[in-house]
Design a protein around this nucleic acid. Structure first.
Lengths: 110, 110
DNA sequence: CATTCACATCGACAACCTTCGATATAACTC
DNA sequence: GAGTTATATCGAAGGTTGTCGATGTGAATG
């Protein structure tokens, strides 16, 4: 387990994903950095609402944040998603083949 | 994809997991069948509340239900958990090694 | 067939969440 | 330093969710 990355509980992880707007934002920043303004333009909610959702994703450790002058760039932490999903599978599907795979190998360690 | 199993959206899946009582129930019935009464005894909420949570898990396709006389037995659908988590990883971590694994092989098909 | 048992459903209430407009903050610009 | 731009925070409104007691329902039981 990486010490830098705060451990996110399964409930907190699920709550962070439990909103369509948040999932939409997550897809936008999944594979690239985006400024808050760019995200606001891409989704159909106000700027404060986008900031609010980004704060929730930040608190869950699901996004990386980088400040550059006036702009703040967000990007999704894909590794965190993998780790949290791995936790879910370990806890709620301990008898599945996938669980054997992810507990045997250290595929989720990074 | 199994035609019997209704496709659960990632938002619906996340919402189903986004409550500690529900996750507690999911762990209880993860690897065994339990009647509603047994679940009520094991958790610290009322019987109507347990029924309510079971209904949400049922609507999300996350539990199997079996009636036997007066009793109703619930058990977790581990395969569904694996499939839904696989979907999350594919969508939100497309560049991870795990995504290559689960898209290359058909490990999630059952 | 009246009673009991197991569970689901209903109605109400409180807590929480999403959303917005308004405002604060912090950084560039002229 | 006054103005502008980008983002965060605040406060309120409205919707959703979790919880409970009360009640409905359907199956076993005597």
């Amino acid at each position: 387990m990486n010490a830098k990355t705060k451990a996110t509980s399964s409930v907190e992880f699920a709550k962070a994903l439990a909103d369509p707007t948040r999932q939409e934002i997550m897809i936008l920043i999944c594979c690239r950095e985006m400024s808050v303004g760019d995200i606001v333009e891409a989704v159909d909610v106000s700027q404060p609402t986008v900031s609010h959702h980004l704060a929730i994703l930040r608190d869950a450790g699901l996004v990386r944040v980088r400040n550059e002058g006036k702009h703040t760039f967000y990007s999704l932490n894909q590794g965190k998603v993998v780790v949290c999903c791995g936790n879910l599978i370990e806890v709620f599907a301990p008898q599945s083949e996938v669980t054997e795979m992810i507990t045997d190998t250290s595929a989720l360690e990074k």
